[in-house]
Design a protein around this nucleic acid. Structure first.
Lengths: 194, 194
DNA sequence: ACCATTATTGGATGACCGTTCAACAAAGAA
DNA sequence: TTCTTTGTTGAACGGTCATCCAATAATGGT
């Protein structure tokens, strides 16, 4: 009986597993732990594969950034639910997004985006569609046909507020949990209805 | 004429210069650029001094984190101005805090705080006094003698909102400038007055 | 001018980094 | 079985990292 030295995976599967391992490493140790060695150990792959599938560490990081956005974009996808404002907020505060490991990924990535123009460009694309989706929800919520300038402002404010809540929940979990997050949004959103 | 090989500084001066250099490096290249070599080059010091004054890189990073908080704590210091809510907000949105380099420092640090318990403890101390100061301002703004639970919630919400605004202004400066930040806060704060 | 103090230097060291690539082997086809 | 394709391995490389510490030299007191 001969045990195979390794398992061959399809390129898509292997690439996906490397990305997932990259996200796991980011959430556990931040950007400084994002090394080829750590990632490959977490993925059960050998060091050479990162270069083979992503051209290098930066390529994998960009892929990880895109992958981090995926759950967010899914949550605001048109085909989902009716997308009322309240439903949208509840969804964004759900355990799917408020998990500590997921938030740590964002913190690790944001620090890199701040000094990496390539990632900034990628961020801008996603951010715009994200904000547009929220602006449409607020417009509907206030009975408008199409988003007005007010809705864009409100959407930008909401995104900033949510980002801040995720941030606090990650670096000071005792001070910001789901209950406080709901209360914070409610107290600020209460009077925006005009 | 013999030119001295180096200049002797007092321990306090030298330590302070290393911290400033550390902050500069963080703002320019994020946490991955926070290396002894980069810091000492920026500071005009030699590599050995970081170990001598801070015990190592981690010690310097902790000192930099404390130093990053300094401007924030100054802005909310009791002895300053009357600390009305509007004045406080205007101060926190002023050029002193909304500078891109200063915000990049926060982004670099947050990613590290998320995975470093020592920095988290330090954050908690500062965060609490920060929030208390804001809660007192909101209490006064709404004519209450002492901060109520509502004020703490509102303060936490405001801090999250401001953090989010700083974040967006840093990674997507075209989408979040001073004008939009003001508008975002106004639209959300308009109805919180109850 | 000399000495004691002490801030500072920078070479040495060992660990770890990302990348490259020739050799290898798993899996399917013939 | 044998061959071809192609996903995978891991040693080798040059570079950078943090840390240590013996040697050095700037400074102030005498």
């Amino acid at each position: 009986m001969t045990m195979p030295k390794y398992k061959r995976l399809s390129p898509e599967t292997r690439a996906s597993e490397l990305v997932q391992a990259g996200l796991q490493v980011l959430s556990r140790g931040g950007i400084t732990a994002f090394t080829i060695e750590n990632i490959c150990k977490a993925s059960g792959a050998s060091r050479g594969l990162v270069g083979h599938y992503f051209g290098g560490k930066d390529g994998l990081l960009a892929a990880c950034y895109g992958a981090a956005y995926a759950p967010l974009l899914e949550s605001i996808a048109e085909d989902k639910a009716p997308l009322t404002l309240n439903g949208l907020i509840e969804e964004l505060l759900s355990e799917r997004h408020l998990r500590r490991d997921g938030m740590a990924i964002w913190l690790a990535l944001w620090g890199e985006v701040a000094v990496n123009p390539v990632l900034q460009a990628e961020h801008l694309r996603h951010y715009r569609s994200y904000r547009t989706a929220i602006a449409q929800a607020t417009a509907r919520h206030f009975g408008r046909d199409a988003p007005a300038a007010t809705d864009e402002t409100l959407a930008a404010a909401l995104i900033a507020l949510l980002d801040g809540i995720w941030l606090e929940a990650c670096i000071a979990p005792t001070e910001m949990d789901l209950g406080r997050a709901r209360a914070a949004i409610e107290i600020l959103l209460k009077g925006a209805a005009r």
